[in-house]
């Protein structure tokens, strides 16, 4: 006869597997949101309405540092996840905090870029092009911010609950999310910034 505890364990394991699967599906729906925002950006590329043009707006150095922050944070998240697999609690938390610092720098840099543009009179209200730019980039930024809330939450969960199965599974899914945002950023870099600098 099966005990209730065994049944619960079985149920939990199955449900965690389902969640990993469902999370991939969620990422696909999110990818569609970004794809449509990219498409909108591309179709509105020349709708600058006599306002500032992409060439006047971006600062290569700034974007380079932003990109670096995000790419490094993806690597550090990887370390955090590896540490969690090896059940190294302190190391995992440490790497998560480092990831958080890089993520935060990315968001701060992005916000400062936005504020600078707005102060120069290139806010999202200026033209269809700028609306599309701000919406695409800020949607990514919002995702990163949500990811950071997730990192903080996971840090607390690791500290208070330890590296239990559900916690590790959540960390894995958050990692998927974080790397996904990296890929989206590479898309933004190639579609939004790169053509301007070339």
């Amino acid at each position: 006869m099966i005990t209730v505890a065994e049944l619960i364990r079985e149920h939990e394991e199955e449900s965690l597997e389902n969640r990993a699967y469902g999370f991939w599906l969620y990422l696909m729906t999110d990818a569609i949101i970004f794809a449509l925002l990219f498409a909108t950006y591309v179709t509105m590329f020349s709708n600058t309405a006599q306002g500032p043009k992409p060439v006047d707006l971006f600062d290569l150095q700034h974007v380079f540092i932003e990109t670096l922050c995000l790419l490094i944070s993806s690597v550090t998240f990887g370390f955090a996840f590896l540490a969690s697999v090896q059940k190294k609690l302190a190391s995992s938390v440490g790497w998560l905090l480092i990831t958080l610092v890089f993520g935060l720098s990315f968001v701060v840099l992005e916000v400062s870029e936005f504020l600078e543009m707005i102060n120069e009179g290139a806010g999202p209200q200026k033209s269809g092009y700028l609306s599309a730019f701000f919406t695409l980039v800020a949607t990514h930024g919002l995702h990163v911010s949500v990811g950071m809330v997730g990192i903080m939450m996971m840090t607390c969960q690791i500290l208070f609950k330890g590296l239990t199965k559900p916690v590790c599974s959540r960390l894995f899914r958050l990692g998927l999310f974080w790397h996904f945002l990296d890929i989206v950023w590479i898309g933004i870099f190639s579609v939004v910034y790169l053509p301007v600098f070339i």
């Binding site: 709708n47 309405a49 999202p124 269809g128 609306s131 599309a132």
Partner: peptide
Amino acid sequence: GLDRTLDMHFFTNDLGGN
């Protein structure tokens, strides 16, 4: 919603909306 609430120009007649 962004057009309406934050005065952006995705779909407006003017300022590059389409």
